[in-house]
Amino acid sequence: MAISKNLVKPLSLLFLICIVFAASSRVDAAITCSSVFNGLIPCLSYVVKGGKVPPTCCRGIKSLYSIAKTTADRQGVCSCLKMAASSVSGIDFKNAAALPGKCGVKNIPFKISPKVDCSKVR
């Protein structure tokens, strides 16, 4: 599958972020930012362009949701997503916020937004 020219820059940035976090970050939780990003890379085309949510995106969301059991895990995931949301250009935050529901995951304890306060996530 070919990558659209519109996605090359965001994907490149996301890949760079993954490498940096894979080498250095655990976000004080058992879940690393690299695992968050790797699980959600299939969602990038949807959050930028909309359309149909890829099944691999939903698998990533469900997997992430199932392993984020503790407050520290959920705050760590929130911090990773917040950092990604403010680093990747072109994200439609309405699409991002709709993803959990479209994938059948309910009760996400925070809004996917660059403005979310992750310290309040429980």
Rank of each mutant, 00 (worst) to 15 (best):
C78F: 05
C18R: 13
P114Y: 14
C33S: 08
S4T: 02
N95P: 00
K52L: 15
C118E: 03
L64E: 05
D28N: 15
N6M: 08
F93R: 04
C18L: 12
C103P: 00
C78G: 11
V53C: 09
C43L: 03
D117Q: 11
L81M: 13
Y46H: 13
T70A: 02
K69D: 07
K120N: 08
K120C: 05
T32H: 07
N38R: 01
L11H: 02
K102H: 05
V47K: 01
K52S: 15
C78E: 13
N38P: 01
R122E: 09
K9M: 00
C80V: 02
F110N: 08
A29S: 14
S113L: 10
I67N: 03
G76C: 01
C78D: 14
A98R: 13
F93N: 05
C103I: 04
K52D: 15
G90S: 09
R74Y: 10
R74Q: 12
P100K: 12
V105L: 06
N6Y: 10
F93T: 01
C57K: 01
A96D: 07
K111V: 15
M1C: 13
I41F: 11
G60E: 02
I108Q: 06
K106M: 13
C57D: 02
S113F: 10
A29P: 05
K120R: 14
T32S: 14
L81N: 07
I41L: 13
S4A: 06
K5F: 06
K102D: 08
V20T: 04
K111I: 15
D73A: 03
